[in-house]
Design a protein around this nucleic acid. Structure first.
Lengths: 135, 135
DNA sequence: GCATCTATGTTATGTTGTAACACACATAGC
DNA sequence: GCTATGTGTGTTACAACATAACATAGATGC
């Protein structure tokens, strides 16, 4: 696949990012650790250190309300705005989207308060279309 | 003070809510536990069970990105909309606000996707006005 | 009385995340 | 070459956050 080549990931970073990409959904750090034991991972720090960098690069997002991590769903992560996530509490599916208008309003509020916004966490919990239909 | 009398809090709920109200800012569950040891608290579950109810009542909010809890800043918590939080990473101050317009846009997106929205987590990280000025 | 529901107390355990220290490897400057 | 520096890595131990399981107590409704 060779996506995100712009970052020249290290071995551990590539393994962690690969796990998340292949999973296609959120994984906890310890779930990643278990997946990567066959690749020689032994300790949580190996995962957390890689995750820190991947989040810094913007190609992995942390889901605060799940204590989990997910690969960015954009083909090319350079320069997109703040991400938001719709999390289905039935099936665990996570949909990433970029609510620029809503973020603009939030940023307007912070500016009116003199608050220097660094980053946003927007996570929506509920039930996805498929799970609503099936039950 | 006798705010939130509508909920008839139990003894433990009242103690936990009192700690948060008096703190005037976010506290972790274990910080609350330490504050309430003199009142007979011995185990984390005593705190977590009270917090679960207080969050359910809507008079305490959980800050996912801090693993902490904060008393709702509204005088009367009945019927207000989804809350958002501006969290200063310098001084730890938390400001609660109610971004109805932004939430409306987020809800519009979920509805367009057939996603049944149950609740929102909106947490803004950055630097507050005072810390920007002093640093 | 007694069934039921909620709140509570307690012990133990599970899950998530970091501190501290050592070593390997690359590269820039001398 | 060789050393200083920065980053990535490996490992042990531990801190911080949260819940399972089981027992007890009190209130309410029949």
């Amino acid at each position: 696949m060779r996506t995100h080549a712009q970052h020249e990931l290290t071995k551990n970073q590539a393994l962690v990012f690969g796990s998340l990409s292949e999973a296609g959904g959120p994984l906890t750090a310890y779930a990643i650790l278990d997946l990567l034991r066959e690749d020689g991972f032994r300790a949580p720090l190996q995962v957390y250190r890689a995750l820190d960098k991947l989040v810094e690069f913007g190609i992995v997002h942390r889901l605060e309300s799940l204590n989990a991590f997910v690969a960015c769903s954009h083909k090319d992560c350079t320069g997109h705005g703040s991400a938001a996530f719709a999390i289905c509490e039935k099936c665990g599916d996570v949909r990433e989207f970029t609510p620029d208008d809503a973020v603009r309003l939030l940023k307007d509020w912070t500016e009116s308060q003199g608050f220097a916004l660094a980053r946003t966490t927007i996570e929506l919990r509920g039930t996805c279309k498929d799970c609503v239909a099936s039950g």
